[in-house]
Simulated assay, not measured.
Amino acid sequence: MTYVAGFLTPVPNGNKQAYIESTRKAWSLFKEYGALQIMETWGDQVPAGEHTDFRRAVALEDGETVCFSWMIWPDKETHDRCGASMQSDPRWQDMDMPFDGRRMMWGSFTPIFEESV
C-alpha cells in the first residue's frame, strides 16, 4: 500500500520562483530514492480559522504564503530509506531552502481511503 508524506511550508512571496526551483532539484533525488509523485501547491485561499488554521500552523508572517505539499511513496519502507539517506547522501546538503525550515511542518501517513476518477 502507498505511503504519503505531507508538508506545510511558509514561503516568502519573493521566493516563489526559488521555491519552485528548489522543489525541482529535490524531486530528482526523491524520485531516485523511490518517490512516485510530488504535488507542490501555492496558497490561494487560506482563510483564518477560529481555533486553528494553516496560517497559525506555520506562524505565517506578512509577505509569506503557505505552501501545501505531499509526496506519494510506494510503501513506508521506501519512504524511510529516503529519510535515512538525508544523513548519508551529501547531495541533500546542497539543497536550497528559500524558506524558514524551522516553521515547516511535516508528517507521514498511511492511507485509509483512496478513490479517483
Rank of each mutant, 00 (worst) to 15 (best):
S69L: 12
Q45N: 14
H51M: 04
E40R: 03
E77K: 14
E32W: 01
V11R: 01
Q37H: 08
A59V: 10
S85C: 03
D80I: 11
I112A: 08
S22R: 11
R55P: 00
V117I: 11
G6C: 14
E114F: 05
I72A: 14
P111W: 00
Q87A: 15
E114R: 07
G101V: 13
L8H: 03
H79C: 15
L36R: 08
Y3A: 07
F54I: 02
S69V: 08
W70P: 02
A48I: 13
H79P: 02
T23Q: 13
E50F: 09
Q87V: 02
D89H: 07
G49F: 03
W70R: 00
D96T: 11
W70N: 10
P47L: 07
L29R: 03
T41H: 01
G107E: 05
E50A: 11
P90H: 02
R81H: 05
G49D: 02
A84H: 09
K25C: 12
F113L: 15
K25A: 15
P47I: 04
R91Y: 08
E115S: 12
D100M: 07
E114N: 10
F7L: 07
G43A: 03
P90T: 08
G101C: 05
D80N: 09
E115M: 13
T2P: 15
C67K: 00
V46L: 11
Q87S: 15
M97A: 12
K25S: 12
Q87M: 13
P47G: 01
S116K: 14
R91N: 07
V117C: 04
D100H: 08
R81W: 01
D100Q: 02
P74R: 10
G63L: 11
E21Y: 07
V11E: 06
V117G: 09
D89I: 01
W106E: 10
W92D: 11
W27D: 06
C67W: 02
M39N: 04
G6P: 02
I20C: 08
G43L: 04
R24H: 12
V46N: 04
R103Y: 11
D80K: 08
W73V: 03
F30Q: 12
E40K: 00
A26I: 12
T52R: 03
V66H: 05
M95T: 04
M105T: 06
P111K: 00
T65K: 00
T78E: 12
M39K: 11
A59M: 13
K16P: 01
V11G: 04
I38T: 08
R91L: 11
Q87W: 06
W27P: 00
M105W: 06
M86H: 02
P12G: 08
T23F: 10
V4A: 01
W70V: 05
E77Q: 15
